[in-house]
Amino acid sequence: MAQESDLTLMFASFQKYLDSEREIREKIREAVNDLEDTAREVLTLLQSIHQVENHQRVPEICEKAKGYFSKIKEQYANIASKVPDNQFYRFHDHWRFVTQRLSFLAAFLFYLQHHGLICYEDTAEMLGLKVDRKCGFHLDLEDFLMGLLQMATELTRLAVNSVTAGNYQEPLLIKKSVTQLDAGFRLLNLKNDSLRKRYDALKYDLKKIEEIVYDLSIRGLSNKTEDQ
């Protein structure tokens, strides 16, 4: 009899454990939802640069987008406060997607402002995250790289649209960045995982951007702007 009650007691403690886990998950999900909302707002805002009439207003739009990042930092801090110490990877799946999206947005914003590629540390800084796992809630390296790859696709689209808007210099700059990105990714030994799959798509982006540059150069468009 004593044995039976021991067993029941033990299973009751597991039930308690499972319940508390579910509670934590729900809290995290709630916090992540807020972050996703903000990420969507930033995305919508940055999408407007594809509009022909907005091509001149890029700096202004970037400034506005930059304003959101303090809010993002707060929301990440909120998520971090819900995650127990040293259990980042237990719940990582909840914010993995939105983190990839946000590192894409950070990289895109950085490109629009500086015409270069953002580095890991700067992305983490923009999102208010740490680089090293031991220092606290951190930005996973693979999430950051995933963001870079998403940005390459977006830049390719931007190249098409800037040609439409009469900006013939932009594709050349974009080509340079995407080529650099490709060279960088070539240094990595990727496993057969989601990052590898996403990286395999980079060559199509590169191909497309090279075609655009080709189109411009055979027509002699790459040397001049619309005003000339």
């Binding site: 590629l117 390296l141 790289l145 240094l187 990595l188 030994n189 990727l190």
Partner: peptide, 16 residues
């Protein structure tokens, strides 16, 4: 940039 990617390489390789 390549230097940066080399550090990523080291990190990813170590993890794998």
């Amino acid at each position: 940039l390549l230097e940066n990617f080399r550090t990523y390489q080291v990190k990813i390789d170590a993890r794998h």
